[in-house]
Amino acid sequence: FTIDICIVMIAVGMLMCVIRLLKSPHLADRALASDTLGVELIGMVILLGMRFMTSAFIDGVLILSLLSFAGTVAMAQYIARPHLRHKQVKSNEKLEDLA
């Protein structure tokens, strides 16, 4: 199956363009980029699995998707975090003027 070689190449192309996004303006973009990159990797793994004819990779894919989902959730939590810190800063001012 020489076909899958070209498939591998396509996967390569996509990975490249995603990286460019990593330099994008806002953090959320970067988070998104990293998530998509993760999924690209999953695609890559599937193709490799096909190429090497082993069925062991399938479990790996499932774990990969689970992990990338957890990654996105964590990233979202982090992005929302500064919001919390503002809160803290505000409350500090309140405390100071009270003291």
Binding site: F69, T72, M75, Q77, I79
Partner: peptide, 20 residues
């Protein structure tokens, strides 16, 4: 799994981005 995880993930990201 993909059909569940991806939308939820992006929803969260969107909310976080909005907040930020």
């Amino acid at each position: 799994f993909q059909f569940i995880a991806n939308p939820v993930g992006s929803h969260l990201l969107a909310k976080a981005a909005k907040l930020d």
